[in-house]
Amino acid sequence: MTSSLLFNITTLLYLASMLAFFAAIVNRTKPFFGTAGSYIAFGGLLLQTVAIGLRWKESYLLGIGHAPLSNLYESVVFFSWTIVLIYGILDLKYRYRVIGAFVMPFALLGMAWAQLGMKSGIEPLVPALQSNWLLYHVITCFLGYAAFAVACGISIMYLIREKHDKVAQANEQSIVATFPPSRVLDDLNYKSIMIGFPLLTLGIVTGAAWANYAWGTYWSWDPKETWSLIVWFIYAAFLHARITRGWAGRRAAWLSIIGFAATIFCYLGVNLLLSGLHSYGG
C-alpha cells in the first residue's frame, strides 16, 4: 500500500462527499444524503491522515526523512486535509451539514489538482527548510487558511441565502430553503474566522521566529510576509466590522470572501507571480 494510492482514494471520497451534499440540497426531504456526505468526508479525512503519515515514513525509507510539507504538492495535499478537518470540527459542533456542499469543493479541488496536475515525488529537503520551525509554521498557517476557506464557503452560501430571502418568501420549495438561516450563516462565518484568525496570527509569529532564528531578521517585508500581513489586516478589519453595526451580514460576507481571495494569493499567487524568499511552491 503506497501513500499515493491512498491519496487517490481520498480524492474520490471527497468527490463522493461533495456529490452527496449536492444531493442533500436537492432532496430536502431525505436527510440521509447530508449524513452520508459528512461520514464520507470523515472517512476521507481518516484515510488522508494515514496517507500523510505513510508518505512521511516513505521519506525515511528513502533516507531523506522529513515531514511531508516541503513542496507545493505536499502543501496542497495538507491544505485539503486541514479544510476537511476544520469542516469536521464545525460539523460536530454546530451540525449544519449542508455547509459541506460549499466547503468540500475546496478540498476536492486541492486534491484533484495535486493528484492530477503535479509531480508527487519525494525530494530531499534544501538546507533553508531543514528546521523544526517549518513544521510549526506550516501547520499553523494552513489551519488558519483552511478556516478562512470554510468561512468563504459559508459566506457564499450567506449571499445566496440572503438574496433569496429578499426576493421570495412564498417560494419555499426552492433549493435555497435547505440552507441554514442567514443569521446562522453569518454567525458561522464569524465563528470560522474566530478559529482562523488566532491560527494565522500564530502562523505569522512562528514564521517571524523562524526567520529571526535562521536569518537574524524577524521581518523583512518579503512579498510572502507582506501578503500574510495583508490577509491579517483584512480579517482584523472583519472582526472590528462586527463591532460597528452595519458591517455584519452582507458586507461581512464580502469581506470574508475578499479575505480568502487574498489568502489564496498569499499561498499561491506570491509563489507563481512574485519573487522572494519563499520560493517554496516553484
Binding site: 512579498p223 507582506t226 489586516f233 483584512i234 482584523a236 478589519a237 512574485l274
Partner: peptide, 12 residues
C-alpha cells in the same frame, strides 16, 4: 486596516 492592506500590495 483596509488602507494598510491595499497599500502594502504596492511593495510586493
Amino acid at each position: 486596516l483596509i488602507t494598510l492592506a491595499v497599500l502594502s500590495i504596492v511593495g510586493t
